[in-house]
Design a protein around this nucleic acid. Sequence first.
DNA 1: CCGAAATACTTGAGCGTTCAATTGTATGGC
DNA 2: GCCATACAATTGAACGCTCAAGTATTTCGG
Lengths: 168, 168
Amino acid sequence: MAETRWLDDGEQQAWRAFLMAVNLLDGALDRQLRHDSGLPHAYYQILAMLSEAPKRELTMTALARLLRSSPSRLSHAAARLEGEGMIRRFKRPGDRRTTIVELTPAGLKVLEAAAPGHVHEVRRVLFDTLSREQVAQLREISESMLSVLDPQGEEPRYPDPDGIGSQD
Amino acid sequence: MAETRWLDDGEQQAWRAFLMAVNLLDGALDRQLRHDSGLPHAYYQILAMLSEAPKRELTMTALARLLRSSPSRLSHAAARLEGEGMIRRFKRPGDRRTTIVELTPAGLKVLEAAAPGHVHEVRRVLFDTLSREQVAQLREISESMLSVLDPQGEEPRYPDPDGIGSQD
DNA sequence: CCGAAATACTTGAGCGTTCAATTGTATGGC
DNA sequence: GCCATACAATTGAACGCTCAAGTATTTCGG
């Protein structure tokens, strides 16, 4: 391997600040959601994603792909969420490998109850502190990272027929 | 609570991209470090922080503060790292509540061995994809978040007497 | 000084994530 | 049609993190 090119001062400071911020951000969101709704952030995202899908259902694989989650992680999560009645799982007729996950009315209720507090927290720790310009910058930076971290990154766009909308 | 102000399109897209990116970034760093050195990213950060401290030692509380880690988390981590001989813990003479953590030569070796691969990965997924300007933007955005997430945020500056430098 | 409160850290249970292995099902080559 | 391969999802163990509770020590008010 070639000689390591260490981070210069600017990079170092950006990196450290970024790491700390992300670390704390994640903790804050998770804590707020867990406290107010009993859901970890990752589980909230599952419900949110389902709520926007046509018929509020997706295959496990599609859902995992959208959330950039491993199949295993999703499977474990689905087990809990199904046990609590927030989602339902059933095999797709015609391909018995495929499992379809559907958001139940109970799950939708939980999501809708959790959404306002969550959005409030996202605003508090992120958007309220950033200018409109910084939001655009953050988006470009994030997409830049995604181009490396997830080159295949498709982001299927639904017409959002009757999901509850921009709750995340 | 007042009517919820949902995220507008720009915010929504920035937020989603940011979430995915951070999620994948964290996974990538953790995977690389675990694979190449057996250390989770959080543990690597502990060693890195210690390596920069005077005499390569800090109290548990100071270390936790610097890493924005809970005392509990650090305590668990220290137990494992000590068990593997990478750090050493001892009581401070004069205040028997206080525990001092010291990076051992063995711990420093592990850190130095892990550093190049880690920095390479950080470059690959972050700095290589960003312009110099974007790095500055990311830093400001991060510090903006920190002002809310960690208002007390002191960042003690050591003269870096003989830590191995900018390995993180 | 004495007891209450603060400080410093540790512990154990519960939980989500990861990784590797496993099961079951569909498909493509021949 | 058959078998190897790919695909879809699940499982269980290991492990790090969180939270709440606990231990030990020090400080501080009256």
